[in-house]
């Protein structure tokens, strides 16, 4: 299911916990699986659960709880816009709307070319930088006014 590199990384995570507490590594393991496959299919979740010796539904609980895990395929770039309260008050919603019109898609949709998926994100812990976005769960983008957004999109395309 997963490549040996991914399994090696998961093993490294497992090693951080006592041997009988393997399932403590579930969040990291799911993240590694998602990084390799682009999203978490049911098969991937079941594989990770089996690898950690836990019930598939227990891994699914985790995967469905956190919104940075994608249970459906996403585009090459996943842009998450924070619309939690502080961002919302400081232009987060407007940034989201601007992205929607620029890309011609709504939240949880992917551009027809499969390049960009737009998501509503949860607080990224940088309310002072609002509006904030995160690309592919890794790259934080701060002070995202329309100009900055254009720059970002140009870069992604």
């Amino acid at each position: 299911m997963l490549t040996s590199e991914s399994l090696k990384r998961i093993d490294r995570e497992i090693a951080k916990y006592p041997a009988e507490q393997k399932q403590s590594a579930v969040m990291a393991a799911l993240a590694i699986a998602q990084e390799e496959q682009g999203w978490l299919s049911s098969a991937a979740i079941e594989f990770v659960a089996g690898y950690l010796g836990m019930a598939p539904i227990a891994a699914y609980e985790v995967a469905s709880f956190y919104n940075m895990y994608d249970l459906k395929p996403v585009g090459k770039y996943k842009v998450s816009v924070c619309t939690n309260l502080p961002c919302m008050l400081t232009g987060g919603v407007d940034a989201g709307e601007y992205l929607k019109t620029k890309l011609g898609i709504g939240y949880n949709e992917t551009t027809p070319d499969g390049l960009i998926t737009l998501k509503e994100g949860e607080c990224m812990g940088a309310c002072g930088d609002a509006p904030v976005m995160i690309v592919n769960n890794r790259r934080m983008c701060s002070w995202m006014n329309p100009e900055q957004i254009d720059k970002l999109l140009a870069e992604l395309k």
Partner: peptide, 25 residues
């Protein structure tokens, strides 16, 4: 399921007002 039956077949998926009890797929 977890404690008496020994097999966790039901779980609570999703979060807050979207939470629901379900089996895996």
């Amino acid at each position: 399921g977890q404690e008496i039956a020994g097999v966790m077949e039901l779980g609570m998926a999703n979060r807050n007002m979207h939470a629901e009890i379900m089996t895996f797929v």
